[in-house]
């Protein structure tokens, strides 16, 4: 299997190409949904982690591994569902004229890549958060390359979860910016 950073890069590139085809305004709708979902997960993570831990715990020796796998599956499925719903629907597309030429292509490519980074990067973040507990993927924290280990600090929730202003994270301000832009548009 290819190293995780190669897979990550390839998937972000694929999202960028999808963005190129779909156009900037549609992609921005996906960005908005993903940022809001990530904000919700970021805020609710301690609560969800605790709740899932209680539900999945059964008292046997394999408890920790099973709880970790369950928690990873839950967060990964939330992100995959959010991405699927926002890509499949038209509901949050921003209004406006479709941008043509190099500008439209460039913005579509960049926004697509941002969506890829948010979706795939968050999945990687949750895999790493619980020590790559989903066994069949064949990933292990101690087997990651140096490059992959250095990239973990730049994954969406590590980066955008940092405090920006008034004790609130980047995610909150990005979500507000996108929602205000959506309302104005």
């Amino acid at each position: 299997m290819a190293p995780i950073e190669v897979l990550f890069g390839a998937l972000v590139l694929m999202f960028a190409l999808i963005g190129l085809v779909r156009g900037f305004l549609r992609e921005l709708g996906v960005t908005t949904v993903l940022v809001i979902v990530l904000l919700a997960l970021h805020l609710l993570e301690p609560l969800l982690e605790q709740g899932l831990g209680r539900i999945l715990a059964s008292g046997d020796a394999l408890q920790t591994a099973r709880v970790q796998a369950g928690q990873t599956w839950f967060f990964v499925l939330v992100i995959v569902s959010a991405a699927f719903i926002s890509y499949a629907g038209e509901t949050l597309s921003f209004r406006g004229e479709r941008l043509g030429g190099a500008l439209g292509m460039g913005l579509g490519l960049i926004t697509g890549a941002v969506n890829g980074y948010l979706a795939v990067g968050s999945i990687w973040y949750y895999l790493d958060r619980w020590d790559y507990a989903i066994g069949f993927l064949g990933l292990r924290a101690d087997a990651l390359s140096e490059k992959a280990q250095s990239l973990i600090a730049y994954l969406p929730l590590n980066l955008l979860g940092q405090t920006l202003f008034l004790g609130q994270s980047w995610l909150l301000y990005l979500a507000l910016f996108l929602l205000i832009a959506r309302v104005i548009r």
Binding site: L28, G96, E97, L103, L107, I110, T111, L174, A181, R185
Partner: peptide, 16 residues
């Protein structure tokens, strides 16, 4: 991150 936000704002402005 700031650059991406500015580009998004520019894209929205251009689409109007």
């Amino acid at each position: 991150v700031v650059l991406v936000v500015v580009l998004i704002a520019f894209g929205l402005y251009s689409a109007s």
